[in-house]
Design a binder for these strands. Sequence first.
DNA 1: ACTTGTGAAGGCTTTCACAGCC
DNA 2: GGCTGTGAAAGCCTTCACAAGT
Lengths: 196, 196
Amino acid sequence: MASQGTERVSSQQLSERLDLSAAQIRKDLAQLGELGIRGVGYDIAGLVERLTKVLRLDQGYRMVVVGMGNLGRALSAYFGFNHGAFVVVAGVDPDPEKFGLDVGGFTVRPLEDLAQIVRDEGVDLGVLAVPASAAQESYDRLVAAGVRGVLNFAPAQVQAVPQAPLKSVDLRIYLEELVFSLPEDAEPDSSSISTE
Amino acid sequence: MASQGTERVSSQQLSERLDLSAAQIRKDLAQLGELGIRGVGYDIAGLVERLTKVLRLDQGYRMVVVGMGNLGRALSAYFGFNHGAFVVVAGVDPDPEKFGLDVGGFTVRPLEDLAQIVRDEGVDLGVLAVPASAAQESYDRLVAAGVRGVLNFAPAQVQAVPQAPLKSVDLRIYLEELVFSLPEDAEPDSSSISTE
DNA sequence: ACTTGTGAAGGCTTTCACAGCC
DNA sequence: GGCTGTGAAAGCCTTCACAAGT
């Protein structure tokens, strides 16, 4: 809405876009202070500014991707990863064959250089795109190198330390949710059976 | 637990593993019928069977990936996508340079063949790994080809029809959650300021 | 003795509805 | 007239605690 130049929005309008009740929108926004103007609505630019700050997206985050296989390269290029607050500034891999490979924006460097890269590039976050078997070790290396948090795409349980929170993404969950949302197979014969 | 040959488990044990209260575990499982045995616990094999059925993972799902860039290839190989109920059986791309490319398990085929592939291979689900600009069109093609549901990785709003539910994965959300979970920066000077 | 299943209590979240303000 | 902010009411979910069962 901001990028379309709209200036104000009501809780009613937001509720339609976000599929929530208008009262919910107002209760939630009121938590952040009196952002709205009675009789008028909310100032969009003001909302964006306040929310950006609350969500801590008012500062940039520099990231390093560990594991430059298909997933690592895909994540490095992922639209969302290079917009707004997030930028991938480096990628590392243990395989010497990958060193120097250009991944649009940076070239792949040796895993061994991780600590130096984190220091020199001012890296804040690490992304794990390694096989499950290498996940824990890679997390430990990232922590030792000094990152503040890690996003893990490896399908593995990783033990984290409080100084570097870990968030794991399990893509299987999405498949399971999708399958569960599928309409039931039509009943083979009888015309009106209530779905229990 | 099942794969380790354990036979029984108590709500207490499950609560520790899942980080929920034992009462919650019991309430939830009781919804599915009386699965436990008083004084004894739950039969693990029985639980797995019941949950697999409830979550509709007792049948296989065949998938086609649309877009064979880094992300598409990564998803095709993703551990989770080829275990248990889910199998990627085909990948398509509009780029003729990619036709015939081997992606471990299958070769890339023309986007044009989508309808035929869905029919011949008995494809149930589609996965969108295309640029945002191609997301809607690709979804529509998948629906026309006859898939029952679509998982979308493109950072785009896609309009879905009820016959083919859409689930979109926005990886930026994970980065935002990770950042929000980061410990606050230490205050620059004074020794005890309450974090407000 | 041990553990489930479950009413009842407690706590939390959402919705209602309207005073207050533009 | 229109819209926010918010107490009060309603609704929902979690926890408690114990009877019932092995």
